[in-house]
Amino acid sequence: MNITASDVILLAHASCGVLGCVAATWVFVEVLNASPRNAARIRRAALFAALSMAAAWVLGGYWYVHYYSPEKAMILKGPWPFAHNLFMETKEHLFFATAILAFLLPIACREELYANAIARKLVLSVSAMVVITGLALEGAGAVIDHGVKVALLRGPGKGN
């Protein structure tokens, strides 16, 4: 078994992103039933979503800056160059929008959501957008990963 730091960081990045999406889903469901009883739980879940996305940012950023270059070169020489040109380029910038939304979540949850319909609508919208854009980023990550795989299996000199 040969597990490198690059492998651990990349998988931890994706896992933190998923945890952020799960926590945002949790916030969404709790806010649908907002009451004084679950107000503290909503705030804790929102904070967890923000911290998970912050961790995904740090881990993904470190991996992207230090380890991505050889994979990028491989993708661009392979049969799926769009895995970088479209999916990675979009992912690396759209991620900032998801993270900003996740950071907004605990701030928006400071309101008394059970008594404020507009604040409730805001938190429902923000948490839904964290989940939708977060899952789109996870899907883009899978396409980028597959871009490397097809380059290794079917790239130049592989005879397929």
């Binding site: 979009t90 910038h93 759209l94 805001l122 919208s125 923000v126 957008m129 854009t133």
Partner: peptide, 17 residues
Amino acid sequence: VVPILIGSVVAASLGLG
């Protein structure tokens, strides 16, 4: 505020893609 925020996310995402 909610339509402004949703509109900005949709516009920014489409703009990048």
